[in-house]
């Protein structure tokens, strides 16, 4: 039982940055923009979040910075794809190259041969596991529910809020209309351009917080220029498919990915021994299968927003 609790606990810790990235990309794709720049935006957030944490010692400022810097990258993408109608795939990929480049160059400038930049102990304390009086001490449940760092709760709450937003509010419905059929949304009086800008930038910023999670928590508060984000942005793009564009399912989806990522440390060698790369491959294999099955069943519910990847030009209606 203890081993299982530990396993779930580790899975949730490693799933959280994925949840931020996935949620950000879902919000972006809901307005019909496929942004392949998630990895780049997470790097931008990872750097800026780390830098501000390092300089100011404030968790709040660090998170704001990570959101803002990644949102800036998303704004560039938004300007190019929405106003200037550049190809979404190419612009997103460029944002990835650019974002990784910026983060590594600035990170390199901050690092010296003798000293790896590291956040202070007091800040480290703030992002470490909560210890609530009474609640955390409940056997099993305490560890499983009340013993995470604060960002884990933030990610889950944010996902639930966006689930409700898309499912139950008029505004959310309008946003979905933009992604499904921008021409019809436009005709219905929804300002397509404004909605696209808002959600692409918002989504990018949330990806950035996921990046800050990786540099502050997953990276133990030290800047490793080799790989802070380490491909998690790409996994998030895959997870969007797995979650079938649903923020609530993104919670479950990222948890499953997190479980696969932690699985190899917890499966006793006597039960089954799979090589590490095979464990790492499983989530992608699963995602591909989900992608194929939804396309075979042609289920309208679980598909990508219909206009995703295509730019909208009113005069070409």
């Amino acid at each position: 039982m203890d081993a299982f609790i530990n396993f779930l606990y580790a899975a949730i810790i490693s799933a959280t940055p994925l949840l931020f990235g996935t949620l950000g990309e879902i919000i972006t794709e809901k307005v019909g923009n496929l942004n392949l720049g998630v990895e780049g935006m997470m790097w931008l957030g990872a750097f800026s979040g780390f830098y501000v944490a390092f300089k100011t010692d404030s968790l709040l400022l660090s998170l704001v910075a990570s959101f803002a810097f990644a949102a800036l990258g998303a704004a560039l993408y938004a300007f190019l794809t929405i106003t200037l109608r550049a190809n979404q795939n190419v612009t997103g990929l460029t944002l990835t190259t650019f974002g990784i480049g910026i983060a590594k160059v600035l990170g390199y400038a901050m690092t010296s041969v003798t000293k790896q930049p590291q956040i202070s102990d007091s800040l480290n304390q703030k992002v470490s596991a909560l210890n609530l009086p009474f609640l955390t001490n409940i056997p099993y449940v305490g560890k499983l529910l009340f013993n995470y760092n604060i960002l884990v709760y933030f990610a889950v709450i944010l996902s639930v809020l966006f689930y409700l937003y898309f499912k139950h509010t008029k505004r959310g419905l309008n946003v979905r209309a933009v992604g499904e059929n921008p021409a019809a949304a436009d005709a219905a009086g929804i300002n397509v351009t404004v909605q696209k800008y808002i959600h692409v930038i918002l989504g990018g910023g949330i990806c950035g917080i996921g990046g800050a999670y990786m540099s502050l928590i997953s990276g133990n508060g030290t800047w490793h220029s080799g790989g802070v984000v380490n491909g998690y942005g790409w996994i998030a793009v895959a997870l969007v498919i797995f979650a079938s564009w649903n923020p609530a399912r993104a919670i479950v989806g990222s948890l499953i990915f997190g479980m696969f990522a932690s699985l190899q440390n917890y499966v006793p060698a006597s039960v089954v021994t799979l090589p590490t790369p095979i464990y790492q491959m499983l989530p992608f294999l699963l995602t591909t299968i989900v992608l194929i099955i939804t396309s075979i069943r042609k289920s309208k519910e679980n598909q990508q927003p219909a206009s995703c990847g295509l730019n909208y030009f009113r005069e070409e209606r």
Binding site: L95, T97, I100, G101, V105, S225
Partner: peptide, 12 residues
Amino acid sequence: LSADASNVLQGI
């Protein structure tokens, strides 16, 4: 200056 500057320039 980090070699990753090539990525930044490429992106620009």
